[in-house]
Design a protein around this nucleic acid. Structure first.
Lengths: 344, 344
DNA sequence: CTGAAAGCGCTTACAG
DNA sequence: CTGAAAGCGCTTACAG
């Protein structure tokens, strides 16, 4: 029995040297075998893996990070967690990354460019292996930081087609067009657009709304309502009341997010305005509750969970240095027809 | 000009040695000065800090973790992110921890004990400096893992008073009593309890409901409805319909979470049942939308953001080895009276 | 294909 | 109070 010589600083954990000793090979061979590095004799790989399992070896992420200058962290920056949209996105990412051994560091930017920058700086000093950021609009220095870091990065939620930029999302603009066209198709003519938060994706939806109405010859700039306040049921109620009091003949409202639309539905209820008979209402994102509301809410179902999964997979390829066949993935969307826009 | 001798493995980052060189002291002195270790001459501290700032020195977390066997990570385990409650909790934690340099690793357990255990194991191999877990009920091996790890841990959301256990929360049971008593006080006699998910805290609320009705001599076990499905507007609607169809004379329903109550409110609307005239409805947590609903929802406002902040502060003390004056903090709750339980 | 050496950037433990 | 030495547990880079 050879008792291991151990300094009193040892952490007590099973190390590569322990496994090497047990397997009768060098530390390096175990290291390579366990990471699946090529050029290790199959027999030695087997011995190493067996010994590692027997001893319950778990690699130390800190040591690995220090030696290789690569961490097992993936940082993800999202605007909010109070919108279920981003919760689903995050779940998709975590589900995909967790089994691969990567740890997710999640930062909430609150739609604030300087908060985003601060968070990014914080994550960058941990030298994450990969980066996931929401959207394409960022402060100049945020973009610089990402580019200079050389760390693989995938952009979420939007469709981009820039060289060297990776993204998974869908066309916010097209989705808004589809909603607007549906309102036109169901006989509406005075269609308002109600937006809050005014983040980049909301503004892209505003474009889609505008495009569609202009093509139909129905565009009226005074029917576009934008409120920079954070999106909420409450602000949706307020906006509904405003719109109807100032423009009582409006016959449809496209809210840029379901929480606003739900608030609008509640305001209509309080005001005794019939939906969809008098005003037809559509939302965006198909958030929890929209199918249960009275009336149920027509909306766009967005593939945020799938975006999370797909983006994480793409990032995995990038982190491994594998080629990415499709750097800009469009996952589409789906118009969900419900009572709130039924033909009057 | 002395050019630094650098191996080609160097990461290019500014290291402690660079700072030491610039400050004209040893690496150790800089290390101690920067960490605020005692027993460094004030003048040298100043020089070290100045040099560090000038060079833009940022300590490498991996190196620090490896050398000290202590990471800068705090792991937090929460059941869900789709309940705003936990989002607020997490925000409170992040807000408090971020400026201190600790990174948060967040894991979602989905109310699943084995998922919780898996996540915990994953985090433990990163040797986090601290642990934050939701509630007090965990699998035996989860408890063992936490205890054996020796890592400081604070329990969230509940009030506990066990030796050696740290917690920040409020009494779920008392809060439920207060709601129930309010329903009694407003003249209700056939008060149903509708619960979903059936997690520990929900069951504690059931106890409070039961206690209160028993004391009032109004308890009827057949008015307790428990559905193990995840809490949602939809399940709340379903439960409301069930309760009213089977027990049409019920005059109040206490839903254990606001999303259920909101669903109940919508079901009542669809069924043409007047709230609060025929049935009074109360919820729990004061989630977004509850103040805007029609009618607005009476509920318990829970201090989850404050719980996050306070728990993070307590954990900080524990991680620094400082004494904790109050190991079990009760942050209370507030009954918010709204229209849904107004006197008929 | 395998391994001995050196090093990643920090902190611990020990002298002085 | 300060510093030289050694080490944390791994991987890179280089020989063989």
């Amino acid at each position: 029995m050879v008792s291991k010589k151990r300094d009193n600083r040892a952490s007590g954990r099973v190390t590569l040297d322990d496994v090497a000793l047990a397997a009768g090979v060098s530390r390096m061979t175990v290291s390579r075998a366990l990471r699946g590095d090529r050029k290790v004799a199959p027999e030695l790989v087997a011995r190493a893996i067996q010994a590692a399992n027997r001893l319950g070896y778990v690699p130390d992420p800190a040591a690995r990070a220090l030696a290789s200058s690569k961490s097992s962290h993936v940082a993800i920056l999202i605007p909010l967690l109070s919108n279920q949209l981003f919760v689903d996105l995050l779940e998709g990412v975590q589900r995909t990354l967790l089994p691969t051994g990567y740890q997710t560091l999640m930062g909430v930017t609150h739609y604030d460019a300087s908060e985003e920058e601060q968070l990014l700086k914080g994550y960058l000093m941990h030298r994450p292996a990969g980066l996931l950021v929401t959207g394409s609009e960022h402060s100049e220095s945020t973009k610089q930081l990402i580019a200079k870091s050389g760390i693989p990065c995938v952009h979420l939620m939007e469709t981009l087609a820039q060289d060297g930029i990776y993204s998974v999302g869908f066309s916010q603009r097209d989705a808004a067009r589809v909603v607007t066209q549906h309102l036109i198709d169901t006989g509406r003519r005075r269609i308002a657009f109600a937006a809050a938060q005014l983040d980049p994706r909301t503004l892209q939806r505003a474009h889609g709304y505008r495009d569609c109405l202009k093509e139909a010859g129905l565009y009226d700039a005074t029917l576009e309502w934008q409120n920079p306040a954070p999106s909420s049921l409450k602000i949706g109620s307020t906006m509904f009341e405003q719109i109807l009091s100032i423009r009582p003949r409006v016959d449809a409202i496209f809210f840029c997010n379901d929480d606003l639309a739900q608030g609008g539905l509640l305001a209509a209820l309080r005001m005794g305005i019939k939906v969809p008979r008098q005003v037809s209402i559509a939302g965006f994102n198909d958030l929890p509750g929209s199918a249960e509301f009275v009336p149920s809410l027509t909306t766009i179902k967005t593939p945020r969970w799938e975006i999370g999964v797909r983006a994480a997979k793409m990032l995995l390829q990038l982190m491994r240095g594998e080629p990415v066949a499709e750097p800009n993935v469009d996952l589409g969307f789906e118009l969900v027809l419900r009572q709130s826009t039924a033909v009057a």
